[in-house]
């Protein structure tokens, strides 16, 4: 069986090639633009050079043409915004739908979250299978192959997206996946300055400061890379302290494997209290400083 792998980052390319290798005996890494190709990861590396000014997605037609030629049964794509478009166009071309954000894949049965983690759904592609998934489950799996290079001829896109400019996003460098203790702030924080009392608790505990998605959207109180949940980070710290967080599933799936969960909320009926080990019903403005003080 033939598999295609689409990736923007080298780690993902390696991991997804390893994933592809578990189901396919013939793996082609489709490398669009200037992706650094990992060593010995695929049988074939199909290189698509991006003409100047072209968005990465403009390579979709070229990828479809390559698929017509090589007839992959299965496609693995890294879940980036751009590749969701490329994978989507390829799926449309193949008469398929992408099964997205796959968390486990066994015998052609893909698992993925439904309603933000309220349920897990097991799905099977009816025809050709196109998946997006991270390489998290395949970090240790071996990728292999001769990496035979093939230069793919550019197919002019019918509906081109022209890149006018690009500006890197300056990242905070915070990596909460490595933190033992995470304090997480929700909309219970009424204003940005109030976050200082969460920061004071973090300092005392040597904790990282995370948050719910609304604190990074519309308002820019905290960096996007620190929000936890189905569309953000999945973390498993020893201790998770949620303050002013209601405990919606979309958030909790990102932290519900934490060792011990602590919660502070004014609403005794907040869903978080059914999902925590220790809870305080109270105002974070007074409770957080009291905790910091008592530590």
């Amino acid at each position: 069986m033939k598999a295609f792998v689409l990736a923007e980052h080298t780690d993902a390319a390696r991991g997804l090639c390893a994933a592809a290798r578990t189901v396919a005996d013939d793996v082609t890494l489709v490398a669009i633009g200037d992706v650094a190709v990992p060593e010995s990861c695929a049988d074939e590396v199909a290189k698509i050079a991006l003409p100047e000014g072209n968005a990465v997605e403009n390579a979709a037609e070229t990828v479809c043409a390559l698929a017509d030629e090589e007839a992959p049964e299965v496609v693995f794509a890294e879940p980036t915004r751009r590749l969701k478009i490329v994978a989507g166009r390829l799926a449309a071309h193949l008469g398929a739908s992408v099964i997205t954000d796959v968390t486990a894949l066994n015998d052609g049965v893909a698992e993925s979250m439904y309603f933000g983690g309220l349920a897990n759904r097991k799905m099977k592609a009816v025809g050709k299978a196109v998946y997006t998934m991270t390489c998290a489950n395949y970090a240790e799996a071996p990728a292999s192959g001769a990496n035979a290079v093939k230069e793919v001829a550019w197919v002019e896109p019918a509906n081109a997206v022209k890149v006018v400019s690009r500006e890197p996003i300056v990242k905070s460098g915070i990596d909460l996946t490595k933190a033992d203790v995470v304090v997480s702030a929700g909309r219970g924080f009424a204003e940005e300055e109030q976050l200082d009392i969460a920061r004071a608790l973090c300092d005392k505990l040597g904790a990282g400061l995370g948050c719910t998605r609304p604190l990074t959207e519309g308002v820019d109180w905290l960096p996007r890379e620190t929000y936890i949940g189905v569309s953000g980070l999945t973390i498993s710290p020893k201790v998770y302290i949620a303050a002013g967080v209601s405990g919606q599933m979309q958030h909790m799936v990102g932290c519900n494997t934490a060792g011990t969960i602590f919660a502070i909320n004014t609403d005794k009926n907040a869903p978080i209290f059914k999902q925590c080990d220790y809870g305080i019903v109270g105002d974070l403005k007074t409770v957080l400083p009291a905790i910091t003080e008592a530590l």
Binding site: Y114, A119, N120, D277, G279, I280, A290
Partner: peptide
């Protein structure tokens, strides 16, 4: 399509 098994948490909640 099934809800995950809920993790067992202590649910030890007190008024401040």
């Amino acid at each position: 399509c099934l809800a995950p098994e809920a993790a067992d948490r202590l649910g030890n909640v007190a008024e401040a």
